[in-house]
């Protein structure tokens, strides 16, 4: 199987206004960590969403671990994230998607957002995980 897989892994370091992106497609492990309020969320996430879409289109019968540890995201990033979860929910028809929703134990807003995602996208296995700030 290894030789068949052609997707390039995607790794972007965090900046002060954009999150670390660590998409290990070869390991079926996708992580976003940090804060997200880039100057132009659509421009920042465009290539990331495109790579994710390419990966999901050619992936079946896999267990995909998604780790989201975002401590702050602005409204335009929120829209992009919502679309990402929509894509994952769709991909969950032919894969197992485990969403590790990591939130600061003091921050109800992030937890509530995760709970809402779970309502909207029931095919994703929602695993809330708190951490101390």
């Amino acid at each position: 199987m290894l030789g068949v897989f052609k997707m390039q892994n995607l790794k972007l370091e965090a900046t002060s206004t954009s999150p670390e992106v660590d998409f290990q497609f070869s390991e079926h492990r996708l992580a976003l960590r940090g804060e997200s309020y880039p100057e132009n969320a659509a421009a920042f996430f465009g290539p990331i969403v495109e790579a994710l879409n390419g990966y999901l289109e050619q992936t079946q019968n896999q267990v995909i671990e998604v780790i989201i540890e975002l401590t702050y995201f602005n409204s335009s990033s929120t829209k992009v994230l919502f679309n990402v979860f929509n894509m994952l929910n769709f991909a969950a028809a032919s894969n197992t998607i485990n969403l590790h929703w990591r939130y600061d134990e003091d921050d109800d807003t992030i937890l509530e957002f995760g709970d809402d995602l779970h309502e909207d996208f029931p095919d994703i296995n929602y695993i809330p995980e708190s951490f101390a700030s």
Binding site: Y37, T71, Y72, N74, S75, S76, D104, D106, D107, D108, T109, S133
Partner: peptide, 18 residues
């Protein structure tokens, strides 16, 4: 300032400034 309050003030500032 409490963490949740800091995040709310920061978030409101970012939304308004952007």
């Amino acid at each position: 300032t409490k963490g949740a309050t800091t995040r709310k003030v920061f978030s409101t500032f970012i939304e308004m400034a952007q």
